[in-house]
Design a protein around this nucleic acid. Structure first.
Ligand SMILES: [Mn+2]
Ligand SMILES: [Mn+2]
Ligand SMILES: [Mn+2]
Ligand SMILES: [Mn+2]
Lengths: 217, 217
DNA sequence: ATTTTTATTTAGCTTTGCCTAAAAATAATT
DNA sequence: AATTATTTTTAGGCAAAGCTAAATAAAAAT
């Protein structure tokens, strides 16, 4: 169907489109994909020719409906594989992304249908992100960043914004995991750092940490 | 490490080397890989440069020790994935090969170690082929082709030589599966066809069938 | 309203893996 | 042994996906 490279571009554009309101810029894609702007221009033209994206010179790109659906199916596969790795193969949540990046490109309808069933139709991946169904539908959780909470608030950790291995290892070290109750004891006006209670222990966290943890409050 | 294409060539050469006694010919590889002889020459030079193969112009190729080990690890992955698909995801033995061709190229040491463990260290794949261990070792079964048996002989089906979907479906239709007892009732001298009893039913099979079924007798 | 800076595109080149057609080597026949 | 047929290699090209450097458009600053 589509090349590995095309699939990766679609995924990147999909993710960038959620933040940007207008078209996604060439440079934004280049940065996300760790490639050069000129390469992006080439590919974006190709996606446009294949009606996977809408592109006007100097105006950025947006995914077409077909492009969005394709991206969602790749994301579906990525996240299902992540669940598989954690639930069945003893991977930790900081180890799965790299491997899922490869597995998401395997082409087999039956494989993904059966994997979904085998995993008992999970709704979220190990990082708390929603798993689209075969039609591309998924639940958007009403979550907020930990950094938005105020002194005295309670909440439950439901996801991470940054899912880099480094950040996840930091969370592990401090016993912060999905599902944990968190209580805001203090918030420093000066540097926005927070004192929180989690797992019956007190912990001071910097804003770079609190702005990468999703909370359901 | 190695490209998808390089890995496929190594695998093809490995399989061809088992039959051919001298070096594997360019044309044989081209046919196996469904490509052109000139493309094979190119790739074989590259493998030779990387010390994965020994190649002398017009004399065919052989795998080096490194090349053989690499091939065996790909075969290991291929067969483990086939077991996974059949044992865990309800695939039938005629559906797995295509998907395993893709999955065998996923790069992750941990993935394959854990998959092996998850499957309880299987020794054979769904077609009866041995699964090499992490060091490339595997048991060679003492098996023979059904076509070599004589009238009155008994045996057990332990593998298939042709594992094309068409052949496997034919076997399914006639209730021939791994582990089944088989009894040779008659063998026609003229066309080498056989009358066998399997599953308490009599069945006449052509030499093209009997020479693609492995028996342990 | 210019000028300067930044972003984007174009042009031209590289590598990988493949192809066709022609040339060269090897194998098979006569 | 010479000729013919087959196999293999070489030469020259193509498409995908990347890159650098130069040109152009858009945005920001003066
Ligand atoms: Mn991921
Ligand atoms: Mn994830
Ligand atoms: Mn197979
Ligand atoms: Mn097999």
């Amino acid at each position: 169907m589509f090349s590995l490279s095309e699939e990766n571009y679609l995924k990147a554009i999909y993710h960038l489109e959620k933040q940007a309101d207008s078209g996604v810029s060439t440079n934004a894609i280049a940065e996300q994909m760790d490639t050069k702007a000129s390469s992006v221009t080439d590919m974006v033209k190709k996606l446009s020719d294949k009606d996977l994206a809408i592109y006007r010179k100097y105006q950025g790109v947006q995914l077409s409906e077909a492009g969005k659906q394709t991206a969602l199916q790749i994301i579906r596969k990525h996240r299902l594989w992540e669940v598989f790795l954690v639930d069945k193969l003893n991977f930790s949540w900081d180890e799965v992304h790299e491997v899922a990046e490869q597995l998401e490109h395997i082409k087999s309808e039956k494989l993904i249908t059966e994997l979904d069933k085998f995993l008992d139709f999970p709704k979220r991946d190990p990082h708390g992100d929603p798993i689209p169904d075969a039609k591309g539908n998924f639940q958007v959780a009403n979550k907020t960043l930990l950094s938005n909470l105020e002194i005295g608030d309670f909440g439950k950790v439901v996801g991470v914004k940054d899912s880099s291995s480094e950040f996840l290892k930091y969370l592990d070290k401090n016993n912060i995991a999905l599902g944990r109750e968190i209580h805001i004891l203090d918030k420093e006006k000066f540097d926005e750092s927070m004192l929180v209670e989690i797992n019956e222990k007190q912990l001071r966290i910097s804003p770079i940490v609190s702005s990468n943890i999703y909370i359901k409050s």
